[in-house]
Every structure is written in structure tokens, then in C-alpha cells.
Simulated scan of single mutants.
Amino acid sequence: MSPGVIYDDNDEADPVLAEYDVFISPELSEQIYLVQYPNRSRDQPYNDRTNSKPLEVRIKPQTGFMEVDISTTVYVNFDKTKGVMWGEALKTAKDSNIHAFGMAAGFGKGSRPTDIHIERAGRRGGRGVQTEIANFETANQNGNVLNKQTLGGQIIQPEPGMPLYMLGAFRGNELHLTQVAGIAQMRPQFHHIDAQSQIVKSRLAQHRASKEAPRTGEPRVVQQIVKTTGANGEEFQFTATSEFMTKASEEKWTKLRYHDEDTDEAYQVYREKLFVKDTAGAPHLSSTMNNEQFLDAISAPKFDPSTRTKRKPLTKKDRVEQANEEAISAAQAAPTVARDDQSR
């Protein structure tokens, strides 16, 4: 990164060290997301250099959910028993066509506990787990071991009145800005525990169904409306939340193609998408605000937490009138004090 213009800082307390020509890239047809990993240190990124390259990246564009699968080692600090048990649970769920868990799946909305076929899981009892552990390498290759970590989050898109984030790329004395379509914070997901819980519910549901006698008569449709009352007595209905959960459960994952940051493909996209090609013909931006209006626009709105009404400051005329009123009041009270003294 080379600066544009260097200034001498001998005459200024806060000098300008460099100036850059700023360009705003045109809106892209592709979506650019800022993906953050709050539980991962900056010096340990998920890439090929740290042996933690993402195995798969998937997204639900309509509801905004994103998940990343990260490979984990199964030979150091790894519980093989739990690895096989949870790996079997995930494989059983996927064999039953269940590929999403948690909020991204609408918390199971629209699915029944009997949707999971537990015949395969029933055969994998304690003896089956021990067999897989004895042949651990083969079990790991066959996908029967939990050998990956899933990170997930929901994409937060910019809203009116909220900050707008942009990516900056330097080229010589040029700064090119590209708008970010959304931000997602990726945190560990526990899909293996959800899958195991689903299997337990399936077993209980099938066991209960086998003992119940067949019901007679026509089935009845019962509609439940969940309501709650706010602080002011108003009623809230969870219609919007329910519709969103249904939409999330019905939307299918879209797999994305991942390129490591050090690959030629990543650098090619970086050069093609994040820079204005025709800098000489780019239109010049002109502001319609003066300095004071600009500061008001980027500043937070004024807010007084006090409920008391503040008095307006007194003018010179108000202070003179107030002083005259105080003098008249003092003069009127003086004879009364004199009469009191004479009576004594």
C-alpha cells in the first residue's frame, strides 16, 4: 500500500499524512457477506494454512441462514465413543431425509418425531458402537464418526437508518469501496445432539403408537392460537414468527463453492469484483450537504433521559424584571417588621 500525497507535519498538530482517491464500486449481481467468527482468534482463521479448511458452505437465501462445516481431527483429544454415537445419530437423521436442525430448520416445525426411521439406529446398539470403535478408521471413512464441526448463523441485512458497511480495497493511491449485502456471525451448532434427541423422540413415539388402540371416528382439526399480553395490556400473536419458522423448515439448502483465500480463484475474484475498472471515466461524487449538515447527519440523535422539563435560560430583560419584583416584595415586608418591633 503506497500513499498518494505525503504532507509535512511540522506546522500542524494533527497533520494529514496521505490522501487517496475514493471510488465506489457499482452494485454487484453477486452477494457479498461479511462472515465473522466470534469464538475464533484472529491468528487462527479457518483456512488451509491452519488445517481447518471448510468442507462445505451452504445457505438459505430466503430466510438468511448460513452454515459452514469445518474438518476436525479424530486422533488427538477425541472421545471415540461419543464420536461414533453422535456420528451414527447424524447419519440416521440424514438417511431419513432430515438435513437441517435448530433454528435453520424452524426448530423442527412441520416434522413429526416418527419421521426418523430408527430401524438402522436400533441395530446400532452398544455392540454396534463397540464394533465401530474397534474398526475406527473404516468407520471414519464411511462417515459413521462425527469428524466435523458445524458453524452457523443468520445473515443480518442492512435496514433503513442502520449503518451501512462497505469493504475497502487499496490499489496505489486509490481506495475502492464495495457495499456489503449482509453480516453473519458464525457460532458452533450442536446438530449431533439435536439428531440424537430426535431419535429418542422417534423411539418414544413409535413405542407409544404401538401400544395405543386404533381410534374411531372422524379426525378433528384443532387450531391453537398462542397469545400473550404486553405491559400495556395489548395482545401479541406469534403469526409472523410461526410463518418464518415454517418458511425456514421448508426452504432447502443451497450449497456454495468454497475457494481458499490463498488460491488463484480467490485473487481473481478479488481483482475483478472489488475495483472500478474505468477509474478515468468514473463520475465524480458531489455532496449536497455542508459541513454542519454532514455532522448532524452522521451524529446520533439528541436524547434527554430526564423526564423533567428544563427551563429556558433567562434573558437580560427577565433578570431585570425578576430583580425589581424581589425589591418590591422586600419593601412591602419592611413595615410589618417595624410594627412588630414597636409592639415589643
Rank of each mutant, 00 (worst) to 15 (best):
M1D: 01
S2N: 13
V5W: 11
D11N: 13
E12G: 00
E12F: 00
A13H: 11
L17T: 03
L17I: 05
A18D: 12
A18Q: 06
E19M: 05
Y20L: 00
S25T: 14
E30G: 02
I32D: 03
L34D: 09
L34A: 06
V35C: 05
V35F: 14
N39R: 11
S41K: 10
R42E: 15
Q44W: 11
Q44C: 11
D48N: 03
T50Y: 14
N51M: 12
K53V: 05
E56N: 07
E56G: 02
V57K: 05
I59E: 04
Q62M: 07
M66W: 04
E67K: 13
D69E: 03
T72L: 04
T73N: 03
F78L: 02
K80G: 04
T81K: 15
M85S: 12
W86H: 09
K91T: 06
K91A: 09
A93C: 10
K94F: 01
S96T: 05
H99Q: 11
M103Q: 09
M103G: 04
G106I: 03
G110L: 07
R112P: 00
P113G: 00
D115R: 07
R120H: 06
G122W: 05
G126E: 09
V129G: 06
T131M: 08
F136R: 12
K148M: 05
K148Y: 06
T150K: 08
L151Y: 15
Q157S: 13
P158W: 07
E159P: 00
G161Y: 00
Y165L: 13
Y165I: 13
M166N: 12
L167A: 15
F170I: 12
E174L: 11
E174G: 12
H176Q: 06
H176Y: 04
H176F: 07
H176C: 08
T178K: 08
Q189V: 15
H192V: 08
Q198R: 07
Q198D: 11
I199Q: 03
K201R: 15
S202V: 11
S202R: 14
A205R: 05
A209S: 11
A213Y: 09
R215H: 09
R215D: 10
T216A: 15
E218A: 15
Q223D: 15
K227R: 14
T228I: 09
F238R: 09
F238S: 10
E243K: 02
M245L: 13
A248W: 08
K252F: 07
D264N: 08
D264E: 09
A266M: 03
Y270C: 01
L274T: 06
F275G: 02
F275R: 12
D278S: 06
D278A: 06
A280C: 00
G281K: 08
N290E: 00
N291I: 02
Q293A: 10
Q293W: 01
D296H: 06
I298G: 02
T315F: 01
K317C: 00
D318S: 12
R319Y: 04
V320H: 14
Q322T: 10
A323D: 01
I328V: 12
A330T: 08
A333S: 14
T336Y: 15
R339F: 08
D340S: 13
D341R: 15
